[in-house]
Amino acid sequence: MTTYKFRLPVNPAQSLPPTRDAIAPSVTALPLAKQTQVHPKKSTDSKNASIFFVGTATTILEWSEIRIMTDPNFLHDGDHVHLGPGVSATRITNPAIMELRDLPSIDAVLLSHYHGDHFDPKVEGSLRRDLPIITTPHAHNHLSTKPGNDKFTSVYPLDHFESGLITLPDNSTAAIRVTGMPGKHVLPGPGHVIETVNDLLGAVPPTNGWMVELGHQSGSSGEFTTGYRIYISGDTMLIPELHEVAERYRKEGIDLMLVHLGGTTIPSPKMPLLMVTMDAKMGVELIRIVNPDLTIPIHYDDYDVFASGLDEFKAEVDQAGLNGKVIYLERGDSFRFDVKVSSQG
């Protein structure tokens, strides 16, 4: 397994405005959450980390002076996005934060794949070119080879089960280990015809899930200790490889899963030729497979190509008797949790 190290600059919260034309962030904190939720069965008062849900698959993780954004998409209601040859989608919601420039400093981006509804054209044109982006080898190739000043200069590729360690300046042991998890937009068809056609058209690019482990690195041995483990499914169908995710972390356990739903159907739900993200039933099955302590659904109703909404998922969760293991965030809500502090130094 390949392991990389990504060291953030000194005083990251002050030094990394999100946009390429900003001298400093115009705001210093995320907006106050409309509602803040915690684990329904754990009543500890110690909650030192949070996830803010912006919309679609865009979330912002905050912990120990580190702020990481997933799949940045800030298009508005009525905006269109290109998803491949002859395929487009219209956004039918607004993000909780309307403009990229309204973000506080961002230290790194986790990009699950190079698709317009996860990395919209306005974001791509506006982000600082040296902002660290951890992504797939496919997206790395696109972002790091752009001509001239459009090229992103700090893009780190992680393939499935490759890891990277995000560290703070030398006086801090806090670190985040990110591992690429398997994902596949397209299920193999008879004779793999569907996969072959997609490879030719490039309509749905290679995708990753992520295992994000918040923890500490020993100053003497360099050993990393996990204090909280988050699995992000990414845009994937219910593929056999997801069982390997469960097996690899069965002993340690997964604290939280962010599951991408929506039953995304192309070219549209009215002409459902191909589903490329999990629907409600598949999402519940993934909960059974991975068995996280808690699940939060995201990516469920923001575009008109989504055919399986949140209400459908709630009904499936209720029928499966899993209500105590799922919480729901509206855009603008946050989830607070506790990262266990290591005694290592």
Rank of each mutant, 00 (worst) to 15 (best):
V155D: 00
V155Y: 00
Y156T: 13
Y156P: 00
Y156G: 02
Y156R: 08
P157C: 03
P157F: 00
L158H: 01
L158S: 01
L158V: 06
L158C: 03
D159P: 05
D159N: 13
D159H: 12
D159R: 14
H160L: 09
H160M: 13
F161S: 03
F161W: 15
F161M: 07
F161R: 04
F161V: 03
F161H: 11
F161Q: 03
E162N: 11
E162K: 07
E162H: 12
S163T: 14
S163V: 07
S163W: 03
G164F: 02
G164V: 09
L165M: 13
L165E: 08
L165A: 08
L165D: 06
L165F: 08
I166K: 00
I166T: 01
L168N: 01
L168D: 00
L168C: 05
P169N: 12
P169E: 11
P169R: 10
P169I: 09
D170K: 15
D170Q: 11
N171W: 10
S172I: 12
T173K: 15
T173L: 11
T173F: 09
T173A: 10
A174L: 02
A174T: 06
A174I: 00
A174M: 05
A174Q: 08
A174R: 03
A174S: 13
A175M: 10
A175H: 06
A175Q: 06
A175N: 08
A175G: 09
A175C: 11
I176C: 02
I176F: 03
I176M: 04
I176L: 08
I176S: 00
R177F: 06
R177Y: 07
R177D: 06
R177P: 05
V178C: 10
V178D: 02
V178K: 05
T179G: 04
T179I: 12
T179H: 05
G180P: 02
G180H: 01
M181G: 01
P182T: 06
P182W: 03
G183R: 03
K184P: 01
K184H: 12
K184C: 09
K184F: 04
K184Q: 15
K184E: 14
H185Y: 15
H185N: 14
H185M: 15
V186F: 04
V186S: 01
V186M: 05
V186H: 00
P190V: 12
P190H: 14
G191M: 15
G191Y: 07
H192A: 13
H192V: 13
V193Q: 14
V193T: 15
V193W: 12
I194Q: 08
I194F: 12
I194P: 01
E195F: 02
E195G: 14
E195M: 08
E195P: 02
T196P: 00
T196L: 12
T196M: 11
T196S: 10
V197G: 04
V197M: 12
V197W: 09
N198F: 03
N198E: 06
N198G: 05
D199S: 14
D199K: 13
D199I: 03
D199G: 10
D199N: 13
L200G: 02
L200K: 12
L200F: 08
L200Y: 07
L200A: 12
L200C: 06
L201M: 15
G202L: 09
G202N: 14
P206T: 11
P206E: 13
P206R: 10
